[in-house]
């Protein structure tokens, strides 16, 4: 039992399952999945679909955090990517043409990659603190996106583009497959090769790793590039979902959600050892929580209060001091209850 409890995925999974359980109890329709036109529908399916952008961003964030870094610019990169894609499609005059879409998506994701490379350059080559280096792009990125769209919210009408976020394949949302592929690729690259361990080494002690011959610069740079690339894809999914490029709203606060998902998954913000499976669970948890809040009838604007509660609970559970405090609590309660006659009875 205690071995199970000590597993690093134990608590993240407990939180996710508890959320699902809570939802199911309060409204059984939550777990109901209906089939319509050979497609699955239901709250759980929505969560799979809507979590895709967060999943992509969180995967990149996991790699960045493992190197002891942080990427605040992912939301801005999403805005840039969406703006690039939609502007190209709009300007082409042929929004349904697959070639145009390919160029648009390629350029947009490329823009994300360039942003990530820029972050990586500032951090790994110039040695600037990650929080500040990415803050630069976080500040400037949305401005750039606004310049690309000319200060407007660009909207398009393109069925193939719409398909990415809203389409179905084999009964499941296409966006979910995008998540799966991204998870698989990241997991394979990190764990089937030595990259994962080398990343952890760099995150634990960059200088020691460098002296041990690890190309720390390349690994850190790569992590930010991956984060930018994945955020680029997330930007495509986001803009495909609303079929518009909104430089101000796209990916707003997603960096915080992503960081939360990573922390929720048991990866320490201090860098080093990381868990991709944990991040996956974390991303689903965040998405479930958001849909829970919506279904509870809370105005979406008040959602942040719940997020705050989650942040506090999560960090407290992870805090060693808090655990020690709570660990001593049963003993204290026992000594307290044993003094009362009722307690003695209950204890026996």
């Amino acid at each position: 039992m205690s071995a199970v409890m000590k597993h690093r995925l134990f608590w993240p999974l407990v939180v996710l399952l508890a959320l699902i359980l809570l939802n199911t109890v309060s409204r059984p329709s939550f777990v109901r999945i209906t089939v319509h036109d050979g497609r699955l529908y239901g709250s759980l399916i929505d969560i799979l679909r809507n979590s895709a952008p967060l999943m992509l961003v969180a995967l990149g964030m996991t790699l960045v955090i493992a190197t002891r870094g942080i990427d605040l610019s992912v939301g801005a990169i999403m805005a840039v990517s969406g703006a690039v894609a939609l502007t190209i499609i709009q300007d082409s005059g042929d929004p349904a043409n697959p070639a145009v879409l390919a160029v648009a998506i390629g350029t947009a994701v490329g823009a994300g990659l360039v942003c990530g490379l820029w972050n990586g350059f500032l951090i790994s080559v110039l040695g600037i603190q990650p929080i500040i280096a990415t803050l630069v792009l976080m500040l400037a990125g949305r401005g750039i996106a606004l310049l690309i769209t000319g200060g407007f919210i660009t909207t398009i009408n393109s069925d193939p583009y719409k398909f990415m976020a809203q389409g179905y394949v084999l009964g499941l949302p296409f966006a979910f497959y995008v998540s799966l592929v991204a998870i698989a690729i990241v997991a394979l690259i990190e764990r089937r090769t030595a990259l994962g361990m080398l990343t952890e080494a760099v995150g634990i002690n960059p200088e020691a790793s460098r002296l041990a011959g690890v190309r720390a610069r390349g690994i850190i740079w790569g992590a930010y590039a991956a984060s930018g690339l994945l955020a680029g894809f997330a930007g495509i999914l986001y803009s495909s979902n609303i079929m518009a490029a909104d430089a101000n709203a796209a990916g707003l606060y997603i960096e915080l959600d992503a960081i939360l998902a990573v922390v929720l998954g048991g990866t320490s913000l201090a860098g080093g050892t990381f868990s991709i499976a944990g991040t996956v669970v974390g991303a689903f948890t965040i998405q479930t929580l958001k849909s829970t809040i919506t279904f509870l009838g809370v105005p979406p604007a008040v959602t942040p209060v719940f997020m705050a509660a989650v942040v506090v609970v999560v960090v407290l559970v992870q805090s060693r001091r808090f655990r020690r405090f709570m660990g001593r609590l049963p003993a204290r309660l026992r000594t307290w209850t044993s003094r009362t006659p009722d307690g003695a009875e209950a204890a026996s």
Partner: peptide, 12 residues
Amino acid sequence: SWTRITIGGLLL
């Protein structure tokens, strides 16, 4: 939007 871009650049 240039304000934020400039601030970002200056920060850098």
